[in-house]
Design a protein around this nucleic acid. Structure first.
Lengths: 223, 223
DNA sequence: AGCTAACTTAAGAACTGCTTAAGAAATACT
DNA sequence: AGTATTTCTTAAGCAGTTCTTAAGTTAGCT
């Protein structure tokens, strides 16, 4: 479990870092905002613990940049001020949680765990990337680079079902169930038509959907 | 973070005080009710930890006086009795939380943190700005520049729900729940009608509400 | 080659969400 | 309490989109 700690105060940074390391986390740390940003962008961190007040760039700006570059690492903001303005702004900018100084190490630890357990405030985990295609289950969108492939609801649902069932054959029956529920069926031909349309739209955007058809069985995503 | 501790028992007072100071709080303390009251009124404390049984003036009276002078410092009451009567009376008088002796230091600490968090949240989560539109959750108003867009309660609630859920799709079901509570649903068409009306009013004021409809899924605020 | 499954396309059917208006319900006022 | 006003819900029409269907085409397998 990799954590990036961006914190100005060296004493706090050291104590948090040591504490987390004792708990088995891998911790990278920096005191500088812009360095923190580039580390967050390039490194593959599970969580970034980010102080708001930092030298060079402040935490909120780091967070904003991080989010606008579509990095979906989870971010836990730290703030010395109890000013709620900060909190609101932070959470709106895309923070997943927020902690006001002073806080106990136990509290930090608890938040970190709850953040890592996916059952928390944000659900940016609901993203699947594959061959340059990014499926966002939150926004119900598929995009290739920064180009959005505009799918209709059923087209999207088919793609979603396949993206989330990589390495397994998905039968038309299963797709039908995914589209219409258990009691209302969608014809196989209808699914074929949707998928055809989705493939066409993707091609127009410059990609092939990585969906193989397994003749006689169904469809499969090739990793 | 400044804390005022008003507690009769000197041993308890000392141990709490030292514990909190170790955690980074600034702690002022007194054993006397009337002294505590004047300190609470003049000093700028984030939280007052207030024992109910005190010399000179009892804790509830201190609390009442504090509230009637419109000080909105958070107050955490301590009581030796676990009698529910006290608890109810305390919370009714305006306490923010209540702790029964004996309690562990960790428990106190946790309550304190949640109180500080709650306090800041409550105070300030009341405004969201977006594309020139300012949503004031305190006053339940939406305004564009200095022009108020006069929304009905349900229209407002819909806009509020969407403004506070940026970057996520909000389904009609969720909106319905937000309007009517969990058990009484509001029809989808009714929501559509409200939103239509809200959009119309905004347009009349010279803005488009930044609410996208994601056909087949719900609505979303565009950042 | 022959058979069949899957793909594609286009047209009409079905559906979705927006809007408007009118009656019902709730709220405020006298 | 009764009345006036506002707000909420419902229904219907409309425009635009999406889904399904069916027929023709392509591709895979033996």
């Amino acid at each position: 479990m990799k954590v990036l700690l961006v914190e100005d105060s060296s004493s706090l940074r050291r104590s948090i870092s040591i504490g987390l390391q004792n708990l088995g986390f891998t911790v990278d740390q920096t005191s500088d905002g812009s360095e923190g940003l580039s580390m967050a962008l390039t490194g593959d961190y599970d969580v970034v613990i980010l102080d708001i007040m930092l030298p060079s760039i402040d935490g909120l700006t780091v967070l904003k940049t991080l989010r606008s570059s579509h990095k979906d690492t989870r971010v836990l903001l730290l703030s010395a001020k109890s000013q709620a303005e900060d909190k609101v702004k932070g959470l709106l900018t895309g923070a997943d949680d927020y902690l006001t100084k002073p806080f106990s190490f136990d509290e930090l630890h608890a938040r970190l765990l709850s953040l890592l357990r996916r059952g928390t405030l944000r659900k940016d985990i609901d993203k699947v990337e594959l061959a340059g295609l990014i499926l966002d289950m939150q926004l119900k969108t598929l995009r290739f680079g920064n180009k959005f492939i505009d799918l209709t609801p059923n087209e999207y649902k088919i793609v979603e079902c396949l993206f989330t069932n990589q390495n397994t054959i998905v039968t038309p029956e299963k797709l039908s169930e995914h589209l219409a529920g258990q009691y209302d069926a969608v014809s196989k031909n209808s699914i074929e038509a949707h998928l055809s349309s989705a493939r066409k739209k993707a091609k127009l955007a410059g990609v092939e959907l990585p969906i193989q058809t397994k003749r006689g069985f169904g469809y499969m995503i090739t990793p």
